[in-house]
Computed example of a mutant assay.
Amino acid sequence: MHKRFSEEFKKSAVIRVQNGESQLSVASSLGISYKTLNRWVIQAKGQMPPENVSLSEENARLRKVLKEREAEIAFLKKAAAYFAKMP
């Protein structure tokens, strides 16, 4: 069974972490798990999708990001090869 926390509660916990408190101490003082708080912090940074995003949507987003990174890597390899040939 999952507990439901209000958005205000989540935001206040994340703000405490962003203000320098350790995640362990914040989680302990609020009576929540470190894992839960860590997920909220990651979501606040925009590195993790909200819980209402489907797996297929997230998979599609990650595939797009992967293609972009692969294209960047290919470009950098070509540039490195070009500059390596210069006298």
Rank of each mutant, 00 (worst) to 15 (best):
M1H: 09
M1W: 05
M1F: 05
R4Q: 10
R4P: 01
R4C: 07
R4W: 08
S6L: 12
S6T: 15
E7F: 12
E7A: 15
F9R: 08
F9Y: 10
K10A: 09
K11Y: 06
K11L: 14
K11I: 13
S12H: 10
S12M: 13
S12L: 13
S12R: 15
A13Y: 03
V14N: 04
V14A: 09
I15C: 04
I15E: 09
I15A: 13
I15F: 06
I15W: 02
R16I: 04
R16N: 04
R16S: 10
Q18D: 11
N19G: 09
E21Y: 06
S22C: 03
L24H: 14
L24P: 02
S25R: 10
S25T: 15
A27E: 08
S28I: 08
S29E: 14
S29D: 14
L30K: 15
L30D: 01
G31K: 02
I32L: 01
S33W: 10
S33N: 10
Y34C: 05
K35G: 12
K35Q: 15
K35Y: 09
T36F: 03
L37H: 01
L37K: 05
N38P: 00
N38G: 03
R39I: 11
W40E: 06
V41L: 03
Q43T: 08
Q43M: 07
K45G: 13
K45S: 08
G46T: 04
P49E: 05
P50I: 02
P50A: 08
E51W: 06
N52P: 00
N52Q: 12
V53S: 02
V53E: 05
L55K: 03
E57Y: 00
E57G: 03
N59V: 07
N59F: 14
A60L: 11
R61H: 08
R61A: 15
L62G: 01
L62S: 00
L62N: 12
R63I: 07
R63S: 11
R63V: 04
K64L: 13
K64D: 14
V65T: 07
L66P: 00
K67F: 09
E68R: 14
R69M: 09
E70K: 12
A71F: 03
A71W: 00
E72L: 12
E72N: 11
E72S: 11
I73D: 02
I73G: 00
F75E: 15
F75V: 12
F75W: 12
K78M: 09
K78H: 13
A79N: 11
A80I: 07
A81C: 01
Y82K: 15
Y82A: 12
F83G: 04
F83L: 13
A84Q: 07
A84T: 02
K85W: 02
M86P: 00
M86W: 11
M86R: 15
P87F: 02
